[in-house]
Design a protein around this nucleic acid. Structure first.
Lengths: 341, 341
DNA sequence: GGTAGGCTTTACATCGTTGCAAAGATGCGC
DNA sequence: GCGCATCTTTGCAACGATGTAAAGCCTACC
């Protein structure tokens, strides 16, 4: 029955008594302090094993001012891209000995602001933050006094590290891919009117750049507004643009959910993909490879984003004082059936 | 500049000094102790606001023996069902003032065992555990000394609360739905040989029960083994059963990912769904509604599962001593195009 | 044999908060 | 106006760990 009834009852004090050493020596053993006589270490270790001692992490946190927990704030896990991102972040964190507390912002501006000042920030050593709604005007809110890594390009030039992909170039590449298949009437769905720095705006910029580079005139009727980047929005945008009567031979979904929604709408309307309309998405979520037809997309290097974000954050937490960095990850066009020749 | 440069510098002590009261009174205000004179409360609150005080949660945890964090152990977030479940659990937890630490087990038995005894259990007040690989033989490992809620029916009768759906009945209903559409050669994909109590086994039981109830002979060739319930497995199982030459007019995927993989395989083989082969899944993930064709499924009451699990766990954490409970949630057949008449 | 210097171990204070129990203030009934 | 009950506020110890600095122990070398 190794001495303890109630959970967490065994403390360093008990171990020390059992091993016949001071409590500090137990602490030293547990923390791999190098100057310990092997015999002592063995004694202590034996006591630890016999008593089933586990360190009280709250006490350690109090003493050290660190919790070993990092926060991850994202819109919601039901969006596959963010679920996959969270998966990668958790794995990267685990490999480095820290755990992840996830907070969902529901893509709500106030909720995103709240997350930055929430009580829970006391519980985490730092935050990886993927905002959707905050814009340049909110830069002040991001001036926080704890380590922060921001994902996505939305907000520039602040005192924090940044991990992002090159949205403009990636969108240009996606568009170019469609053009290479002979498409010229390319609708883009999920645009956000009035936005200048968000992913939506940047991706539309890339789209326009590709058109320009190929001498294709830009037709504003092909840019379809859409709020949240859910499948339902993609379906809706697609129906709207097709109902409007403009000619369309390809659709660029600003993310995969939108593009999958588009496939859904096209299927319902019995429009063949890619023969009549080609479709490409963005993010390369797992769904894309299993959609019918399989969906071409842009792979943003999710693993790399997650790993970089965790590494940057942990470096700040460890006290690194280097200038704030902006990391741009690689992307790749992943052609599949939905844009086949 | 409200007095503090470094993060976390403001303590109750500072607030007390500023407000001219004792530190304990500050604590009382913060914790909504009822017997405080309004004037005192106001003074303290003002000091808190002026100094920007935030409670140190590590200290509170150390003192109270509670962290306000609950653990959620699941196979992986990239599986949409679990991402959606995590979403629901986080929302339910947030509504009750606690936060969620997610651990991924990768559907690996050793990893599932590790999670139960990990150091991180010191950091959480209790655990919601969704095992995939543990079986009845591992019941001992689940005899832990902290509050535990197990999701899924895999392991029976231990000292822990249980939230599950009725897998047998739900699978029977899914199969019956196919039979009602006139199908008689129903393949079931994703079975686990040798398993007796897992979701796979229970769902196959339900499948058999439905066949029996309708006087359809059971053909073992229609039960297709498959390990992890990923889309790729569904594709693979489907190809195997079709290549084997047995006649098939419907496929029951033991979860939606398998069924989506099946749709993918059928599309590639140019088999029309539902005309030649109808398909039904299980879990009703968001994908199902947007697949091509849209996928019929079983909705397991995910919200309800999450809410019940959180409530049961919090009750245990609060010290409830009632007998361990087994909660069975409702399910619903959601018919869509893939099984349309 | 003595001592400098490195290796081990230790005592003590401390991190910020809350439970306890008691002290001080207030109000009510007679 | 007094005494008792109730409301408010307080001081102190404790939660379990670690940093600091010093004490004890050895070894090696003169």
């Amino acid at each position: 029955m190794n001495g303890s009834g109630v959970r967490g009852t065994v403390t360093m004090h008990d171990v020390a008594a059992r091993a016949g050493v001071s409590i500090k020596t137990v602490s030293n053993v547990v923390n791999d302090y190098p100057h310990i006589r092997p015999a002592t270490r063995a004694k202590v270790q034996a006591a630890i094993d016999e008593l089933g001692y586990r360190m009280n992490l709250s006490a350690r946190s109090l003493r050290q001012g660190r919790t070993g927990i990092i926060g991850l704030a994202l819109p919601e896990l039901s969006l596959p891209y963010f679920a996959e991102l969270a998966d990668s972040v958790i794995r990267a964190a685990e490999a480095r000995g820290v755990v992840v507390l996830i907070e969902q912002t529901s893509a709500d501006r106030q909720h995103e602001l709240d997350v930055l000042t929430s009580d829970r920030r006391q519980l985490t050593d730092g935050l990886i933050f993927s905002p959707l709604e905050l814009g340049p005007d909110d830069a002040d809110a991001l001036k926080v006094d704890y380590p922060l890594v921001v994902l996505g390009e939305r907000i520039f030039g602040g005192d924090w590290d940044h991990v992002t992909m090159n949205n403009v170039d990636a969108a240009r590449a996606a568009t170019q891919h469609l053009i290479d298949q002979g498409r010229r009437r390319i609708a883009v769905i999920g645009a956000h009117a009035g936005e200048t720095m968000g992913s939506a705006a940047l991706r539309v910029l890339g789209y326009q750049a590709a058109l320009a580079a190929n001498g294709i005139p830009f037709d504003p009727d092909l840019v379809v507004e859409g709020g949240l980047w859910h499948r339902a929005t993609g379906t809706d945008c697609t129906n709207r643009v097709l109902d409007s009567g403009v000619k369309v031979d390809a659709i660029f979904g600003l993310n995969d959910a939108l593009a999958l929604g588009a496939l859904h709408a096209l299927h319902a309307r019995e429009v063949s993909v890619p023969d009549e309309i080609a479709v490409i998405g963005f993010d390369d979520i797992e769904d894309a490879a299993y959609a019918t037809p399989t969906l071409s997309s842009i792979s943003p290097g999710r693993e790399e984003i997650a790993t970089m974000a965790v590494d940057l954050l942990l470096a700040r937490i460890a006290g690194e004082e280097t200038p704030y960095r902006r990391v741009i990850t690689d992307f790749e066009v992943v052609p599949r059936e939905s844009t086949a020749a």
